[in-house]
Amino acid sequence: MPELMQFLLSGVTVGAVYALVALGFTIIYNASDVVNFAQGEFVMLGGMITVFAFKAGLPLPLAALIAVAVTAAIGVALNKLAIEPARGAPVVSLIIITIGASIFIRGVTQLVFDKQLHRFPAFSGDDPIRVLGATILPQSLWVIAGALAVFVGLWLFFTRTLMGKAILATSNNRLAAQLVGINTAWVMTLSFAMSAGIGALAGVLVTPITLVSYDVGIALALKGFAAAMLGGMGNPKGALVGGILLGLLEALTAGYISSQYKDAAAFIVILAVLFAMPQGLFGKKSTDRV
């Protein structure tokens, strides 16, 4: 039993990170119909920038704040320089553009910083806490609490504020949103900023546990993408559930079957979900109009 508890705890921790990455995918997908393969790089940037700002002598909270702000700015730049000019391009082209962006960001990061593994101290020390016979790192609690805070905050934002409703309206129907006076270009900018900022925050939270280097983004992007698909592309609730499910699945596979194939389990389940219900757990069905 304590064994299972241990797997569940680590699964939820990892799952919370996947959920944040999936949420980032979701926000951009809703605003622009683009699946941003550079999403994992935002997480990497969040970790790397914090590391180097902290090493330069800034207090950790300030370093983290700078990392989130800078990454959000990079997200906006990505939208302005690469996504907006390619509006209306076929899916294949958009995939290549965002993958190109992710390779580019990685290339710049290894030049500006380095290729080493880095970490900074955990927020509340490294002494494990005992829960029902299992242990959990205080930092894991920070990750889980951070993810929850982001989801609750976003939910309030989308349902209670005018700006949030404007974004939802734009994702439903861009043209109609423009007609009622919503500045859709600004909605795009804000979506990329939020998405990148959330990714960076995930990087800040998880780096003390998993460490960070310039090339951790790919794997995170793939997992986050998979989680978003699992939950149903474009649905924030799906991102949360998909992320947590994927994290649990990986932890259980690693624990009970084979740690080498934990990534395989994730992809097998995703293939199965796509076959059985191609729209994901919470996705909408669409009908072609002819």
Binding site: A82, P85, A86, A89, S93, L94, I96, I97, I99, G100, A101, S102, I103, F104, I105, R106, G107, V108, Q110, L111
Partner: peptide, 20 residues
């Protein structure tokens, strides 16, 4: 060699944006 990734990413983006 250090610029390889940077250049590759840049080429991918530029070609897809400007030469669809």
């Amino acid at each position: 060699a250090e610029y390889e990734q940077l250049m590759l990413g840049l080429v991918m983006m530029l070609v897809m944006i400007f030469m669809r």
